[in-house]
Amino acid sequence: MENDLSFIHLIVSASPLVQLVMAALLLASVISWTMIFDRARVLSGARKAAERFEQRFWSGIDLGELYREIDKEEGEAAGMANIFHAGFREFARLKKNPEIEPMAVVEGARRSMKVALSRELDELENHLSFLATVGSTSPYVGLFGTVWGIMNSFRALGNVKQATLSLVAPGIAEALIATAMGLFAAIPAVVAYNRYSNDLERLNGRYEDFLDEFTTILQRQAHM
């Protein structure tokens, strides 16, 4: 009797469809946790890089120097450094041509920085939608498995004359495991999604602030 209600026994004796649902949910959970760890690393890396770069930028270093340094570490530069790199390169290129007006030069640099910014953000929010999907759908998937399992156990109940609770209880318990697994997959995904989208929003604000500040500096330089 005690063996009949162990988790493993319940899972093994479940109907194939419910087992399929459970397997899918387990897979979703593994993948979403992978994403959670991955995003955690990427986002904290981006935040640290932004801090480092801001320190470097406001330390009074010559901008040309900074540009050359970033150019050297090509491929590893990310986030704000990339935005700065794109903007400064465009600025230098346009400035060489004396026919272009200063306003147009600044505008071109700003545009290319915007492009770099959106590329960076795209890199950062990669896979984030997967977490949202898991968070919103896996409870339903689990519920589907449960409903199916309960349906089956009630159907089996209809075939006997004397219905007892012990006849339905194992079936319902095994069906409810599916819901439990769905919630197990969904809750961390939802939490992580909210947390990371908030982080991303903040990073985006920081990048845009930097973009504006740098544009101001460029404007000053362009009119000199």
Partner: peptide, 15 residues
């Protein structure tokens, strides 16, 4: 998913 595995195998292992 595959690029995550390539880029960050630790995350997969931990999960």
């Amino acid at each position: 998913m595959r690029d995550v595995i390539k880029r960050n195998p630790t995350a997969v292992v931990i999960a």
